[in-house]
Design a protein around this nucleic acid. Structure first.
Lengths: 339, 339
DNA sequence: CTGAAAGCGCTAACAA
DNA sequence: TTGTTAGCGCTTTCAG
């Protein structure tokens, strides 16, 4: 029913091979026949069948994006960058929500492989993600986005991320410069490597300033509002006398702010808060959140570019691109009024 | 290189037809051979090639989702519902950001058709979207999500949305009950039908209460923060003496709140604001936004279910599912203190 | 520069 | 219940 290269061939009085050649911009076709064929294609309103070509060419012009949750503004922003690049380079993307589950991740991976996608962009990886290692071993094109793994068993991986150590450092340093000495640190899951790095930055700043960190004021969580809320309550009621909090993402920071208000205290007058990511939420909350900016959209874009180049064989594998990170100063952190 | 049904067939000592049959759970295979074939599949770690089967079956188990912008929390939430349902039913989804451009929409549609996707979920439609009409005419399975078109030229369309007239009505009625008489109304683009409906609800409530609407206090915009900000400035400086604002989405409402604060006024003490959608942002802003809840995730899920049923031929076309809508009362609207 | 023909991996009659 | 055999729409040698 739909028009195929056979129809075009017949109408243009050439073989299907020739039609295929003009379809693929093969240079060996004479200008004259190329024009003729193109004209017929227009006339018959021909549209090539990607599925059929995929069967032989083994290329679907489709990429898979694995993220924990598209409803989380951080990942939505990454996804936008990924889709922008895909679109610019003629690819499409299939989005999968893994909900932080390795099993779901594995299921999606196997499904997408059956669909012969050309490569994966993975934002859901843990530091020793076995799914990723398997893909690497199978030599499937992939790039890690905003995540890194520790143990790739010597296999080279492409990674696009940002400077998390620096991020943790500048956030903490900023609080220190405001006079804070007891600074709490709320991290995400330790299975996600960025948290270790952000903690490292935090510790570095503290150490440099000769400040000691109160063990009860440092904790790992799940990147969600509720964790920020509960942990902050715990910390503020505990022995640490924290006057400032560095949170490893905006959601946790927002939870912290709510806890502070809940206790009848003020941000930043009583307690200062600095977040991480600079999602849309940061400028929505009250007071607007001072936070470390990750260039999420750009990260997504670059990761996709990288992957596509890899797919096209334009480059080898094993590149690490680390984007810069900077502090966006809003109103949630102020001069230390405590002791 | 990868293992095919031929390898399985040889190893299991059956024909490829039989292998294909067990792959498709055809009932005519004897339990014995089925088991044998399955075992071989496991042993050889076989994974079927969806592309190849798609070529004959004309089914890719892939859906296309057209939205303006995944970075907008409203659409991200819809997308999550869509992906959840897709995943539950064994489908995947390709997400496309149209940026409110009919041209981009058309480009994506043609690309996805080339990829033989099974159907479209469209959240980017205008009230007379020609792209949609064309798809309808071509009898391509599709469902409109959170959007409706006016002129489908007599062709039946599936629509999943929510009760916008009611939404506009209850938001306005709530403000009226709080004693407000001069209520402004900030809408989205009139090309998007929901805005006409929300306006209708607004007008209905006003009329019922015997209130007259001040023409300068009603305006169409683009659903963005900036519009809410500017239009509110204009209204508050104008002749209308508005003491309350109903905005047709949360972003516009947030812009309105910013304008109010910018003028040194307070929300809700001086001016009340009610939004629409109940995105994450609503609970983030200060004060938390009273807003009309649309069950976005559910809408996305149901729309996808509907589409999949349609694809499987389990039902006809032309269904309209309208989810209920309700007011989520937070802190951005209060008793009228003005005249 | 162009055409013939053999697949890509799987499905679906049709036979057996 | 199972096998044989044409395709699905396109790409890609290999000849010419």
């Amino acid at each position: 029913m739909p028009v195929t290269i056979y129809d075009i061939a017949k109408e243009a009085r050439v073989s299907i091979a020739t039609v295929s050649r003009v379809l693929n911009n093969s240079s060996v076709v004479s200008e004259k026949t190329r024009l003729r064929v193109k004209k017929v294609m227009e006339q018959l309103n021909y549209t090539p069948n990607v599925i059929a070509s995929a069967l032989t060419k083994k290329s679907t012009l489709t990429l898979g994006l694995l993220i924990p949750d598209i409803a989380n503004p951080f990942f939505a922003e990454l996804a936008r960058g990924v889709e922008d690049a895909s679109s610019d380079f003629g690819f499409n993307i299939i989005i999968c929500n893994t909900d932080y589950s390795s099993d779901k991740e594995a299921t999606y991976i196997s499904l997408l492989k059956q669909k012969s996608i050309d490569g994966f962009i993975i934002s859901s990886a843990y530091y020793n993600d076995q799914n990723v290692v398997k893909l690497l071993k199978a030599n499937v094109p992939l790039v890690l986005l905003g995540r890194d793994i520790d143990d790739s068993e010597g296999l080279p991986v492409d990674v696009v991320g940002s400077d998390n150590v620096k991020g943790g450092y500048i956030a903490t340093k900023y609080l220190i410069d405001l006079g804070h000495k007891n600074i709490a640190c709320l991290l995400g899951p330790p299975r996600i490597k960025v948290n270790l790095e952000r903690e490292k930055g935090y510790l570095k700043a503290m150490e440099e300033a000769g400040l000691k960190v109160c063990p009860e004021a440092v904790g790992y969580g799940d990147f969600k509002i509720d964790f920020g809320f509960k942990k902050t309550l715990e910390i503020l009621k505990g022995p640490c006398k924290s006057t400032a909090i560095f949170a490893a993402n905006d959601l946790t920071a927002i939870g912290a702010m709510r806890a502070i208000k809940f206790l009848g205290l003020q941000v930043p007058n009583d307690i200062s808060v600095v977040g991480y990511d600079n999602t849309v939420l940061a400028e929505m909350v009250d007071p607007p959140l001072t936070t470390v900016n990750q260039q999420m959209r750009k990260m997504g874009y670059i990761a996709t570019e990288l992957l596509i180049k890899r797919i096209k064989g334009e480059r080898g594998v094993g590149e690490k691109i680390i984007l810069d990170t900077e502090l966006v100063i809003r109103k949630s952190a102020g001069i230390c009024n405590g002791k």
